[in-house]
Write a protein that binds this DNA or RNA. Structure first.
Length: 424
RNA sequence: GGAGAAAUACCCAAGUUGGCUGAAGGGGCUCCCCUGCUAAGGGAGUAGGCGGCUCAUGGCCGCGCGAGGGUUCGAAUCCCUCUUUCUCCGCCA
């Protein structure tokens, strides 16, 4: 959510910056009028309420003194009629204003490259050697089927399309990667480990920005007020909703595993094979709550910590700065980590690291005090995948494959897989 | 899932025959006084927060006693709904 006061005072400037996202923001035009109307109604109704408070005291005083107050009571009946009407108008005005504000995206940071689509994202740096194969590298789904570690057909029978069973060493590899990533982030990067609820209520989804605008992307539990989380970002960021944090404790950082559930409403026909785009996948997520003046420095740290996992796994990747048109709803700035997939001969996103500034903090009402008595300020929130497990499995299978169909296990994972050297 | 109890400020806690209680009292904390130091003692302060107005920046006003509604001229106090916590029972990994 954007700062209403900023919107009021820098309207044209904000509109220009939002337009760089290429989204339809025509709603924004209704803001000045609604904002103005709201304040006017508020002033009127508060004046009447003040009158009511003063007169009610007088009624009490008169009754104690056995004096007549019937005229005042009658007057207040009429005032109350007025208050009721104005309150209702105000409530409606605020609801409209709020609905508008909740659908406005975040403002891109000045350092974000301008652009219309992912075509305009900028490669910041690359790491690792793209492997050269003496044979035609197989796609990960084919390798997995031959190794009998992923079963799509069974998942189709049991649940439906875009779900998968991992089994045997495939299941163990998922578990190994979760443990490995959490261990690195907790032991080496200082994150506090967290295992969150996988279902949240609507307010949490609004808090991080998934709702109200992207209802069709979320799985909702029928008959219950719960949504399946699309990422651990949702429960973990909302962990501090409506809290005022102690500024001396910042930055506060969490590393959380969760299963992630996405309906991928608009993705029919894309990446229909393999582990790239599923309705359910595992992910280790990093979340940081920081002071506003530190958040861009913290974004660099966060990104490097996610990169560290790819480096330890020795998977080639590149970092891209997402352009304004591809930034998404809530982020002010975003880096993607893209891992090399040999069979597709391309880089694919395996992590997104974003600074949301105070956009989520306003929605979820997460604040901090610099000093014990200081005025509360909104924190800045950041998060990044550290990493998506399924896509990591895909990358390992494809990058570590051997001519005979076996797949070497990255050295750092070997202890997690009982000392094995190969998936075979 | 069933039955019961509770929710008031940093903590504990009074207040439920509706009106000088936006909230007693205690603890804690901050400042001051006193004592050579410490302890003890005396005094003062301690509702944050959100929003609006005004800007002399210090004020004024509205909301606010778990949350949301309602009754009333007036609600911490009466009514309804919800949430959370605790106890007991049931069920379960």
């Amino acid at each position: 959510m954007l700062d209403v006061k900023l919107l009021r005072t820098h309207f044209e400037e904000i509109r220009k910056r939002l337009e760089t996202k290429g989204e339809d923001i025509s709603d924004l035009d209704r803001f000045p009028e609604l904002d103005q109307k709201r304040r006017q109604l508020l002033q009127e109704v508060e004046e009447l309420k003040n009158r009511r408070n003063v007169v009610s005291q007088e009624v009490g005083r008169r009754k104690r003194n056995q004096e007549d107050a019937s005229q005042l009571v009658e007057e207040m009946r009429q005032v109350n009629e007025q208050i009721k009407k104005l309150d209702e108008a105000l409530r409606q005005c605020e609801a409209e204003l709020n609905a508008l504000l909740l659908r406005l995206p975040n403002i891109p940071h000045p350092s974000v490259p301008l652009g219309d689509s992912e075509e305009d994202n900028q490669v910041i740096r690359s790491w690792g050697e793209v492997p050269h194969f003496s044979f035609e590298p197989k796609p990960h789904w084919q390798l997995a089927e031959e190794l009998d570690i992923l079963d799509w057909e069974a998942a189709g029978r049991v649940t439906g399309t875009r779900f998968v069973f991992s089994k045997g060493l495939g299941a163990r590899l998922e578990r190994a990667l979760i443990n490995f990533m959490l261990d690195v982030h907790v032991d080496e990067h200082g994150y506090q480990e967290m295992w969150p609820p996988f279902l949240v209520h609507r307010h949490s989804m609004i808090g991080t920005g998934q709702l109200p605008k992207f209802e069709e992307d979320a799985f909702k539990v029928e008959g219950e007020p719960y949504y399946l989380i699309p990422t651990a970002e949702v429960p973990v960021t909302n962990y501090f909703r409506d809290q005022i944090l102690d500024g001396s404790q910042l930055p506060i950082t969490f590393a959380a595993y969760s299963a992630c559930f996405r309906s991928e409403a608009g993705a029919a026909g894309r990446d229909t094979r393999g582990l790239i785009r599923l309705h359910q996948f595992n992910k280790v997520e990093l979340v940081r709550f920081v002071k506003p003046e530190e958040s861009y420095e913290q974004l660099e740290i966060l990104t490097q910590q996610a990169e560290k996992i790819l480096q330890l796994l020795n998977l080639p990747y590149r970092v891209t700065a997402i352009c304004t048109g591809d930034l998404g709803f809530a982020a002010a700035k975003k880096y993607d980590l893209e891992v090399w997939l040999p069979a597709a001969n391309t880089y694919r996103e395996i992590s997104s690291c974003s600074n949301f500034e105070d956009f989520q903090a306003r929605r979820a009402n997460i604040r901090f005090r610099r000093e014990p008595k200081a005025k509360p300020e909104y924190v800045h929130t950041l998060n990044g995948s550290g990493l998506a497990i399924g896509r990591t499995v895909a990358a390992i299978l494809e990058n570590y494959q051997e001519p005979d169909g076996r797949v070497r296990i990255p050295e750092v994972l070997q202890p997690y897989l009982g000392g094995r050297l190969y998936l075979e």
